[in-house]
C-alpha cells in the first residue's frame, strides 16, 4: 500500500468506502432475508392451513363453528366439540395455574432467603423443559389412575351430589377426561406464568416497596396493593402467554383427554381438543375429513394469534411505563 500521492490515497479511501458500503448493503440484505424467512414461515403456516381447510371453511362457513356433529360416515363436520374441549381444558388450566404461579412468584421475590431463590427458580423452570410426551406418559400411567382411584370418586361423592354444580362433577371415575387434562396442562404452563410474574415483580422500584414497608405494611399488603397494581398489565400478559401455551398443547392432552366428540357438562367425562383431534385422525383422514382437520388447525392458529396479541400488548404497556 503505497499512497505517496494524496490523490491516490483519496481514491483508495473512496474505493474502499464504496466497497465497504456495498458489502454492508449485501450483508444487511442477507440479514433482512433471514428475518423475512421467519415472517414467511409463520404466514406460510397460517395460509397453508387456511388453504387446506378451504373446502370446509368456505363451504360450511359459520356452520362449521357452531355444529357439534363430527360424523365421518356422512362427511358432516362441526368444530364445536374440539373447540369446547380446547377452551374448557385451557380455562381449567389457567384457573388452577394462576394462583399457584402467583404464590410461587410471591415466594421467590418476597419470602425466600437469597440463597434459596436461584435453585428453586431453576427447579420450577425445569418443569418447562420436560418434553410434553413425558407429561403424556406420566399423565396416562400415573396421574390417570391416581385421579380415578383417589380424586374423582370423592369429587363425585361430594361435589357431584350438590344440585346444579353436581352435573359438573358427575360421572364414572375414569381418570381420563377434561378435568385430568386441565390439571396436566396447569402443571405444564405453571413455569411460564410464574417466570413472567417473577420477572415483572422484580421490575417494581424498590423505593416504592420500601416506602410501603416503612409505613408499616405487611408483606401481603405490599404485594397486593403495591406490586400487583404496578405490574397488572404485565401479569395479565403473562397469563395470556400461558393460555396460548395451553391452547396449542398436543401430546400430553391426547393421552389423557379420552378422545370423545360428545359435549358433556361433566368435567369427569372424556372430551376432545383441536390439537388432539388432528394428532389422532390426520393420518387416517381423506377428502373432506382431512380438510376439516386442517380447518381446525387454522382455527387454533387464529385463536392462539389473538391470545398472544393480547399478551404482547399487555406486556408492552408495562415496558412503556418503564420507559423502554
Amino acid at each position: 500500500m503505497q499512497a505517496n500521492r494524496p490523490e491516490t490515497a483519496a481514491r483508495d479511501i473512496e474505493h474502499r468506502s464504496r466497497k465497504d458500503a456495498r458489502h454492508d448493503r449485501i450483508f444487511r440484505g442477507i440479514l433482512r432475508f433471514c428475518a423475512l424467512l421467519v415472517l414467511a414461515a409463520l404466514l406460510g403456516a397460517a395460509l397453508s392451513t387456511l388453504w387446506g381447510g378451504r373446502e370446509v371453511l368456505f363451504k360450511d362457513g359459520f356452520h362449521f363453528l357452531t355444529s357439534d356433529a363430527w360424523n365421518p360416515v356422512t362427511d358432516n363436520y362441526g368444530a364445536l366439540a374440539p373447540i369446547y374441549g380446547t377452551l374448557v381444558t385451557s380455562i381449567i388450566a389457567i384457573v388452577l395455574a394462576v394462583p399457584v404461579s402467583f404464590g410461587i412468584a410471591l415466594f421467590l421475590t418476597e419470602l425466600a432467603p437469597g440463597w434459596l431463590r436461584g435453585p428453586v427458580a431453576t427447579a420450577i423452570e425445569l418443569l418447562a423443559a420436560i418434553p410434553s410426551i413425558i407429561y403424556g406418559m406420566w399423565g396416562l400411567f400415573i396421574f390417570v389412575p391416581f385421579m380415578a382411584d383417589h380424586v374423582e370418586p370423592h369429587l363425585a361423592d361430594t361435589l357431584g351430589k350438590i344440585p346444579f354444580i353436581g352435573a359438573v362433577f358427575d360421572g364414572p371415575p375414569l381418570g381420563l377426561g377434561i378435568l385430568t387434562a386441565g390439571i396436566v396442562l396447569a402443571v405444564m404452563i405453571l413455569p411460564f406464568i410464574s417466570s413472567v410474574m417473577r420477572e415483572v415483580f422484580q421490575t417494581v422500584p424498590s423505593r416504592l416497596k420500601e416506602s410501603a414497608y416503612a409505613l408499616g405494611s405487611t408483606t401481603w399488603e405490599v404485594v397486593w396493593d403495591i406490586v400487583l397494581p404496578y405490574t397488572r398489565s404485565a401479569v395479565i400478559g403473562g397469563i395470556f402467554l400461558g393460555l396460548g401455551r395451553a391452547l396449542g398443547e398436543t401430546m400430553a392432552v391426547t393421552f389423557v383427554l379420552g378422545n370423545s366428540y360428545n359435549i358433556t357438562a361433566s368435567l369427569l367425562m372424556p372430551g376432545t381438543s383441536i390439537s388432539s383431534s388432528i394428532a389422532n385422525e390426520f393420518n387416517e383422514a381423506v377428502g373432506l375429513h382431512r380438510s376439516a382437520l386442517i380447518a381446525l388447525g387454522f382455527l387454533l392458529f387464529v385463536v392462539t394469534f389473538i391470545v398472544l396479541l393480547i399478551a404482547r400488548l399487555m406486556l408492552r404497556q408495562l415496558a412503556k411505563r418503564e420507559g423502554k
Partner: peptide, 30 residues
C-alpha cells in the same frame, strides 16, 4: 349410526388403534 371406518359414536371414549383401545380397556374398570 351406520357403518364406516369412523362413525359418530353415540357413547364412550376413543383410543388410537387396536393398541389404544386395548390400553384403555385394560386401565378402566367397567
Amino acid at each position: 349410526v351406520g357403518e364406516g371406518t369412523a362413525v359418530n359414536w353415540p357413547a364412550g371414549i376413543g383410543g388410537k388403534g387396536n393398541e389404544g383401545v386395548s390400553a384403555y380397556v385394560k386401565q378402566i374398570k367397567g
